[in-house]
Design a protein around this nucleic acid. Structure first.
Length: 322
DNA sequence: GTTAGAATAT
DNA sequence: CATATTCTAA
C-alpha cells in the first residue's frame, strides 16, 4: 500500500542525518591522548558515550613493575582515516605539534570501525583478488589502507564470509543479491539483518560457486587497473588529509550514521574518499612487470545512482607496498 | 539489557 | 589461514 510506503519513508526521512552529519562521515578513530592533547571536542552536543577508547592495558601495578615494554615497533600507530572535519582539518601541524607529545607511541589501537566505504574497498579488493587469493594478507596489501592490519581484515573477512553464506541460504529464487549492484535496493533484507555488508554491493563472486564444477575458475576481472595518473586538483587536499592522518588521526567522536541504502537525495553528496597509504613513492611494480597480480591502483566507483548531480569519480591512491 | 562488531585466542 | 570465543561499543 502506498500508505505503508509513506510510513516507512517518513521514518527513513526522519532518520536521515542532516548533510552536516554526513559531511564528517568518517571513522572516528582517535587516540584518547591525542584527543585530549588537541582538546578535540565534537560539535555534536550529544556525546553521551565516552570515547571508544579503552584505557590502555595499564595494569594495576603488580608487585614488581617491570618497565613496560613499549611496543616501539609500531610505526604507523595511527589507524588513519579520512576526516573532512573542517575544524581542524586545516591544522597541518597535527603530528608535529602536541607540545611535545609523542602520539605515535604507547598508544594502543583503539578500534577499527568498518565504515561502508572501507568495507566497499574491502569487497572490492576481494573481488579483484578472487577467492583463491582472497586471503587476509593479500587483501590487506591490496587495500593499502593505512592503519589496517591483517587481524582487522581477517576478522572482517570472517564476518563477510558468514554474511555471504547466510545470503546463499536465503536466496530462494532469482539471485536477488546479484541485482544489488544495479538497483541498489533490490531485494533488501531487513535493515537489522546485516548492516554493513548489506550496504555493500556483492560482486557476485562469492555467491554460489556454480554447481557443476569450476572449482577454481577465475572470474574475469571487471575491474580495470588504471595506470597511475596524477590528478592534480584535489590531490593536494587529499595529501593534506593523508598527512594529517599519518601524523595523527583527527576525527570527531561523532556517531557514524549508517546510511542504509543510498537513496537519491538532491544533494547527492555521500561517500568520502578514505585514506589510503601515504605512498609518496610512485608505484613500484612488484618484481616482474610481466604479470600484475596486484594492480597498482584502481578507481573507486561510486554508486551509479546519482541522477541529479554529476558525481565525480574518486580515484584512489596508488598502492604502496607495505 | 540486547545486539552487533571487532579483537583475540585456539 | 580459518574458526571459535570473548570483549567492547552502540
Amino acid at each position: 500500500m502506498r500508505e505503508d510506503e509513506s510510513n516507512w519513508f517518513s521514518r527513513w526521512e526522519e532518520e536521515l542525518p542532516s548533510p552536516e552529519e554526513l559531511m564528517p562521515l568518517s571513522q572516528t578513530l582517535i587516540t584518547p591522548d591525542l584527543a585530549l592533547a588537541f582538546d578535540i571536542r565534537n560539535n555534536n552536543p550529544n556525546n553521551p558515550s565516552s570515547p571508544q577508547n579503552q584505557q590502555p592495558p595499564q595494569p594495576p601495578q603488580p608487585p614488581h613493575t617491570p618497565p613496560p615494554p613499549p611496543p616501539s615497533s609500531l610505526p604507523p600507530a595511527t589507524p588513519t582515516h579520512p576526516n573532512s572535519s573542517a575544524e581542524f582539518a586545516d591544522s597541518a601541524d597535527l603530528g608535529s605539534g602536541a607540545g611535545g607529545e609523542e602520539p605515535a607511541r604507547t598508544l594502543k589501537r583503539p578500534r577499527l570501525v568498518w565504515t561502508p566505504q572501507l568495507h566497499k574497498r574491502f569487497v572490492d579488493a576481494v573481488a579483484h583478488l578472487g577467492i583463491k587469493n582472497a586471503v587476509p594478507k593479500t587483501i590487506m596489501q591490496l587495500m593499502s589502507v593505512d592503519g589496517l592490519t591483517r587481524e582487522n581484515v581477517a576478522s572482517h573477512l570472517q564476518k563477510y564470509r558468514l554474511y555471504l553464506k547466510r545470503m546463499q541460504g536465503l536466496s530462494g529464487g532469482g539471485s536477488g543479491g546479484g541485482g544489488g549492484g544495479g538497483g541498489g535496493l533490490a531485494a533488501s533484507a531487513d535493515p537489522a539483518t546485516d548492516h554493513l555488508f548489506a550496504s555493500s554491493p556483492v560482486p557476485a563472486h562469492f555467491l554460489h560457486p556454480h554447481p557443476g564444477g569450476r572449482p577454481n575458475s577465475e572470474h574475469f576481472m571487471p575491474f580495470v587497473p588504471v595506470a597511475l595518473q596524477q590528478h592534480h586538483h584535489q590531490q593536494q587536499q587529499q595529501q593534506q588529509m593523508a598527512a594529517a592522518a599519518a601524523a595523527a588521526v583527527a576525527a570527531h567522536p561523532q556517531y557514524h550514521r549508517q546510511v542504509g541504502h543510498f537513496g537519491s537525495p538532491p544533494n547527492g553528496q555521500f561517500e568520502h574518499p578514505f585514506l589510503a597509504r601515504q605512498s609518496s613513492q610512485p608505484v613500484h611494480r612488484m618484481g616482474a612487470p610481466l604479470h600484475n597480480p596486484v594492480p597498482g591502483s584502481y578507481v573507486e566507483d561510486l554508486e551509479s545512482a546519482n541522477a541529479t548531480g554529476g558525481r565525480k569519480v574518486l580515484t584512489l591512491f596508488p598502492t604502496g607496498e607495505d
